[in-house]
Amino acid sequence: MQGAGPLLSVKNLYVKYKSYWYTYHVLDDVSINVKLGEKVGLIGESGAGKTTLLKSILRVLPTQGKITGGEIFYKDVDLLRCSKQRLLEIRRKNVGMIFQDPLAALNPVFTVKDQMLEVLRYANERADMNKSDLINMALDLLRDTLIPDPERVLNSYPFQLSGGMRQRIVIAMALASARELLLADEPTTNIDVTIQAQILKLIGDLVEKKGLSMILVSHALGLVRKMTDRVYVMYGGNIAEEAPTSKLFNEPLHPYMQLLLKTAPKLVESPLTEGIKSIPIDYRNPPTGCVFHPRCPYGDQEVCRKVKPPPIEVEKGRFVRCHLYGSGS
C-alpha cells in the first residue's frame, strides 16, 4: 500500500444546489482522500453534506445540484471530466454503494435473482460469461454475506425475506460492483442494535477479506469508531476535522467534535448536558468566517466571525479547521 497514490481523492470540492430563488452552498471546499484498503468514516449530523459528497463522487447528484469547483480523481481518472462511458464503467465495476434505506433499494416486484443478475451482468460485461456463471457468482456473493440457504433466497421476492436478510442482499449487490471501493451511506439506521452488530461485523469482515477501501457515512459515533481507520468530521458542508479514528475519539480537537462527544448519551457515568445550541445552518447564506462559530463555545472572537479557518495540520495526518490551533492569523 505504501507509495501508492490515493484510490480516491477529492480536492477543494464545491457543490451548490440551485432552486428557483436561492442557491444553497452545500459543499464548501471539501477535500478527502481514500487510500487503497483504507476504511474511512464520515461523521456529521443530518444536513452536514455527507450524502451530497457521496453523490458527487458517483456523479449522481440531482439535476439542481451543480459541482462548481474542485476535482475528483478516481485513481488517475478525472471523474468530473471523463467520458460518460468511463464513468459508467467505474460505477459498474469498481465502486459499489449501500444506500441509506436498504429496504427501499430492492424492487418488490422482481426476485432477488433478477436484481442480482442485472447488477452482475453490468459488473462483468465483456467478461464473456453465461447465465449460469452469473448465477454461481450471485450464489457466492450470498454465501459471502452469510445468508443461509442461498438457493432458496435467490428465488425469493424481497417481501418474503426478513429485514436483516434483505440488508444482506443489498450488501451482496453492492459488493458485486465494489471491486475496489465500497460506499456505505448510513447502512444500519433504523435497525435493531443486535442486527446492526451482525451487519457491521459482516461488512467489516468482507471489506477486510476482499481488501476493499470503504467510506462509511454515519451520524452514529460508535459505529464509525468501530469500523474505520480514519475519520472526517463534517459540519455545514466543511471538513471540520480529519484524524485517525482512535486519536479523534480519545482527543478530539475541533470544538464541534468535542461537543458531539461530550453530549452524546453515554453508558458511563456522565452528566447530561444541554446539548449543542441548536442553530440549523441556512445554506443559502452560511455564516461568515468559520461555519461553526454561531454554535461554538469559543466562537465569539472576531477572527472566527470574519476569517474562514484553513485546514491546519496539527500533527502528521491530523487536520483541523479551527482558529484555536492556527498560528497564521
Binding site: 426478513s162 429485514g163 436483516g164 436478510m165 435493531d192 442494535v193 443486535t194 442486527i195 446492526q196 452488530a197 451482525q198 457491521l200 461485523k201 452514529a220 459515533l221 460508535g222 459505529l223 469508531r225 468501530k226 475519539f249 480519545n250 462527544l261 452524546a264 453515554k266 453508558l267 458511563v268
Partner: peptide, 24 residues
Amino acid sequence: SSIPTISEEESKMLPKGVESRGEI
C-alpha cells in the same frame, strides 16, 4: 454487547463473549 461504543471506558463495561447472531 451489540452497542457500538464511543470510548474504551465504555467498551470495558460491556459483557464479552455473547456475540449477536440470528434474528428474532
